[in-house]
Computed example of a mutant assay.
Amino acid sequence: MTDTASLLVEDRASVRVLTMNRPDKRNALDNALTQALLGALQAADRDPAVKAIVLAGAGKAFCAGADVKEFGGFVHAGGADDASRAAQAALDRAHLTTNLHRVFSQIAKPVIGAAHGYAMGGGAGLALACDMLVAGESLKLGYPELKHGIVAAIVMANLVRQVGRKTAFELVSLGETVDAARALALGLANRVVPDEALLETAVAFAERLATFDGPAMNATKRLFHRVADLPLQQALDASLDTNLMMRSFRKEGGKAQ
């Protein structure tokens, strides 16, 4: 296991487990953790020994969202120079956060989320960005931003695509917390398990995915994200392209290269 202070990285055979490690802050996302997580996901995707990824949170929560204390300087900047630096810092952070949420669909390897306790705001967004999600029974997932006078902006695109317009609007406008059972019913989670079985269940899912042919798994994920928002005819064309591409990777009577 390697430790970058705010992120733990552990390899279990061909599964890489990334654990957000700010338990005293409920794994709230500051710049350091956000950058570390983005880099770790990209590094896992480049590593040929890694076939699947698990994302978890240390302590009693998955991720409580953005670390609001880190944004204090943005709000309380003094003179014009301070205000300009604060505005640039806020813009840089927004781009970093967007890149983190974007990378889940860009990397070829599947990511299994293991979420328990609080998964709020940006933390809920991370949970939904995973390709599959195992929820602990203690999960409390929600988007409370509007209650604090801000917008659940970056996380909204993925939320709408996963639960549909009316449910997504309910979640971001009312800001009500969703428990594990409702997350499962809404299709936000794939399984609900006791917290003590959460990580092992997520790793078991990842291990199953890791046994499949690598090029086929990678092509499956790429095609899945490609067709999700395409009209039917374009989606069928994309599917045909992938079918033909995978055939070109195969030997006669053999497996994909």
Rank of each mutant, 00 (worst) to 15 (best):
T4C: 12
T4H: 15
A5D: 13
S6L: 05
S6H: 13
S6N: 13
L7A: 11
L8Y: 11
E10A: 14
A13P: 06
V15L: 08
V15T: 10
T19K: 07
P23A: 08
A28E: 04
A36Y: 06
L37N: 05
G39S: 13
L41I: 13
Q42H: 07
Q42C: 07
R46A: 15
D47R: 02
K51G: 12
A52Y: 04
A52I: 09
V54I: 05
L55W: 09
L55C: 09
F62P: 06
F62M: 07
G65E: 04
A66M: 10
V68N: 02
K69Q: 13
K69F: 15
G73L: 04
V75P: 01
A77T: 08
G78F: 12
G79W: 10
G79N: 15
D81E: 15
A83N: 12
A83D: 07
S84T: 14
R85V: 08
D92S: 11
H95G: 05
L96Y: 03
T97C: 05
T98N: 14
N99H: 13
L100H: 03
H101R: 09
R102P: 03
S105Y: 07
S105C: 10
Q106K: 13
A108H: 11
K109P: 07
P110I: 08
I112D: 09
I112R: 08
G113D: 09
G113R: 00
G113I: 10
A114K: 00
H116P: 01
M120E: 03
M120N: 03
G121R: 01
G123I: 03
A124W: 02
A124R: 04
G125N: 00
C130F: 00
C130H: 01
D131L: 06
V134C: 09
V134S: 06
A135E: 04
S138Y: 00
L139Q: 03
L139S: 03
E145G: 06
L146H: 13
H148Q: 13
A152Q: 01
A153W: 06
A153L: 14
A153Q: 12
A153G: 10
M156T: 13
M156W: 11
R161P: 06
Q162M: 13
Q162I: 11
V163I: 14
T167Y: 06
T167Q: 15
E170C: 00
L171T: 04
V172Y: 08
S173T: 15
S173V: 13
E176Y: 12
A180R: 04
A181I: 06
R182I: 02
L186I: 10
L186R: 04
L188H: 08
A189Y: 01
N190L: 11
R191C: 09
V193D: 09
D195I: 02
E196C: 03
A197I: 00
L198C: 10
L198I: 10
A202H: 02
A204R: 05
F205L: 14
A206S: 06
A206P: 05
E207C: 06
R208V: 12
A210S: 14
A210D: 02
P215A: 07
A216M: 11
N218A: 15
A219E: 14
T220I: 10
L223A: 10
H225T: 10
A228Y: 11
D229N: 12
L232R: 05
Q234A: 15
D237P: 05
A238F: 09
T242W: 08
M246N: 00
E252M: 11
G253N: 12
